[in-house]
């Protein structure tokens, strides 16, 4: 295992979710789905994986009568993402 690279971010979708959450405060499920072009079930399973690692925080609210779930990156998640990104960049530099 290369140092700094996080196994959790090996999945493109999980990496994508974190990318979006790094630059937005709160993003709801449907917006994420649209941005990442994935199915409901697929997105939900990756979200729960990130949640288990406490990389994201979840907020549930009601808009009218519809429930809306939004997500934000946690401090831990942001740190892990930054580390992963730095490792990616380092690897690329070494390879060039």
């Amino acid at each position: 295992m290369i140092e700094g690279l996080n196994k959790i971010f090996e999945s493109r979708i999980r990496l994508g979710i974190m990318s979006v959450l790094m630059v937005n405060d709160w993003v709801d499920f449907n917006t994420l789905k649209e941005l990442l072009k994935v199915t409901d079930g697929n997105l939900a399973s990756h979200i729960s994986a990130l949640e288990k690692n406490e990389f994201i925080t979840i907020r549930k609210e009601f808009v009218g009568k519809k429930p809306k779930t939004s997500y934000a990156a946690s401090k831990l998640g942001k740190q892990a993402f930054k580390k992963h990104l730095a490792a990616l960049e380092k690897l690329l530099k070494g390879n060039m």
Binding site: G16, S19, V27, L35
Partner: peptide, 10 residues
Amino acid sequence: EIKELMERST
């Protein structure tokens, strides 16, 4: 991909 997603979402 990360860069593209960050841009497209903001």
